[in-house]
Design a protein around this nucleic acid. Structure first.
Lengths: 143, 143
DNA sequence: GGATATTAGTTTGATTTGTAACTAACAAGT
DNA sequence: ACTTGTTAGTTACAAATCAAACTAATATCC
């Protein structure tokens, strides 16, 4: 049981983190340089743009984000006029969040950039590799 | 070109990040709860334990970490008495870093835990899936 | 040999994140 | 109605990160 037969380069949390960092930095410039957004803001914007209006709670659940992160991201997106809040009548604790027209434009731009970026990443793999990769990552992330 | 045919769940940077977060949190308790270490400290310790003594510069290159992160991690590990520094004679800017006996014990414990943890993760996959996954991640992380 | 440039590593201050306590609205039992 | 509990979201403070400026040692150019 030597300690020397364990290689960091095969330790999944490590390799996943490095791959995530590398690929994230590449995409970051799209939302950061162009719109001054943070990663969580981008995720929140994406969820609203892709899946339609919803409450902060729902975003937390779908995106796997803590409510304080979502709260701050929503505040920042509101300041940028990318999203609107409207308190629900039947339960005034709940706010329905939705993108403004400007937010929708930003979403359209960024989702197109994301697709292009993802295609470039996918070009490194065969179709079969990509299928396996997606399947494995979904299993890891979903649990 | 609808914006609605792009799914976040197939966007590689997003899925990689979620998988990395989920798997990292699971392993975190081993180094955090037991030894009060941070993720960067654990990475530095691991590099020294696995690959032998080296300078901070080399750790930066191998681990893909910024020098400020390494500097702080080295300071923290030194305070915990897990590593020693020794200035090189021929170039006194360089410090050779190496684990103390105590640090080696910690490394042995954590690398064993890492292997167990990784085996549990790997159990979700067939051997072929795991091979493809490792290959793809290495390609993404290495570029 | 002395000015200038590099390099290894550290420190500082601003930004970002995490944890936990907090407010406000609603629900439910008595 | 009124205490108690729960839920949605915010705020406050501590911890962590990032970028840029800094120090000290060495290398290089004239």
């Amino acid at each position: 049981m030597s300690t020397n037969d364990f290689d960091l380069r095969q330790f999944l949390p490590y390799v996943l983190n490095r791959a995530a960092e590398v690929t994230s930095i590449g995409f970051q410039k799209h939302y950061r340089e162009k719109y001054g957004m943070l990663r969580t803001e981008w995720r929140v914007l994406f969820h609203l743009g892709r899946y339609g209006e919803m409450t902060a709670k729902e975003i937390c659940a779908r995106a796997g984000l803590h409510k304080t992160k979502v709260s701050r991201a929503v505040g920042a997106l509101e300041q940028k006029r990318f999203l609107k809040r409207s308190t629900q009548e039947q339960d005034r604790r709940l706010e329905t969040l939705s993108l403004s027209p400007q937010g929708q434009t930003v979403y359209a731009d960024l989702s197109a950039a994301a697709r292009t970026y993802d295609d470039a990443l996918a070009a490194q793999f065969t179709q079969e590799e990509r299928d396996v990769l997606d399947r494995c990552l979904a299993r890891l992330a979903g649990g």
